[in-house]
């Protein structure tokens, strides 16, 4: 509905080039999908006449300084603290994204524990509460398919930041944060269970939600939803992932 090409209800002065249109948010971010056609019809033809349209969908790209608000303070402190430990911030922090009032540090996976330890212990940072891991599977982000997303909350300074770490499908290893945030114990098991990300150093990385003998990692994009067709009188409706859909 809110396509850039749509005319009904779009105020050209206000909406043209507006940042909330799909595919318009900067070109720097990771490409996660290629959309073909106007409506993104997956199965079944696109009768709109725009079937040949090809657009790449990108996530918000890296931000440049100043980030604004307390974001600069956190970034400065983190970079300073990393330098004190003899690390080069550019090697550790892949990119910093500021989007929708939230700050995301993309961390190289081998430095994750050091960064988390710094964020927790440095008095000027003091992110003492980790709200767990959320796995995301981007099959379109080649070489960085599996992302682990951590949200860290500082009760002391009343701040929230996000750490993002990625690993390729072929080598799904990410260091475990249980030694820094013991609360991640179950969260990492859950992410392992659903995405197959192996958290190295976790004390007991086993399945937590699915039965122990379950095959596959059900919330990855290449794992089917697993529904069955539903029968009604004289009709059958396929499972939700088998239906015609738009995306």
């Amino acid at each position: 509905m809110s396509d850039a090409n749509g005319t009904n209800g779009v105020n050209p002065e206000k909406d043209l080039g507006a940042s909330n249109l799909p595919g318009q948010r900067g070109e720097g971010g990771e490409e996660i999908r290629v959309q073909r056609g106007m409506f993104g019809a997956n199965n079944g033809g696109d009768t709109s006449g725009y079937g040949g349209l090809v657009r790449s969908v990108r996530l918000p790209g890296p931000a440049t300084r100043p980030y604004g608000g307390w974001f600069d303070e956190v970034a400065d402190e983190l970079e300073g603290a990393l330098e004190e430990q003899g690390l080069v911030p550019e090697n550790v922090i892949d990119r910093t994204v500021v989007d929708r009032g939230e700050m995301t540090f993309h961390i190289e996976r081998e430095y994750l524990v050091a960064v988390a330890q710094t964020l927790r212990d440095d008095p000027a940072l003091r992110f003492e509460l980790c709200t767990g891991v959320s796995g995301v599977h981007y099959p379109g982000d080649k070489g960085r398919e599996l992302h682990a997303v951590y949200h860290l909350r500082s009760i002391t300074h009343n701040r929230l930041i996000r750490l993002e770490v990625s690993a390729p499908d072929a080598d799904p290893h990410i260091p475990s944060l249980v030694s820094v945030y013991p609360t991640n114990d179950w969260h990492e098991r859950e992410t392992y269970d659903f995405f197959g990300i192996v958290f190295d150093g976790h004390p007991a990385l086993t399945r937590i939600m699915m039965p122990d003998d379950w095959q596959g990692f059900p919330q990855r994009k290449d794992y089917p939803l697993g529904g069955i067709p539903v029968e009604y009188k004289g009709a059958q409706i396929p499972a939700p992932d088998q239906r015609r859909s738009y995306s």
Binding site: M210, P218, Y223, P224, L225, G226, G227, I228, V230, A239, P240
Partner: peptide, 8 residues
């Protein structure tokens, strides 16, 4: 199964 027509 209701609305939860899925793997679980």
């Amino acid at each position: 199964g209701g609305m939860f027509n899925n793997y679980a």
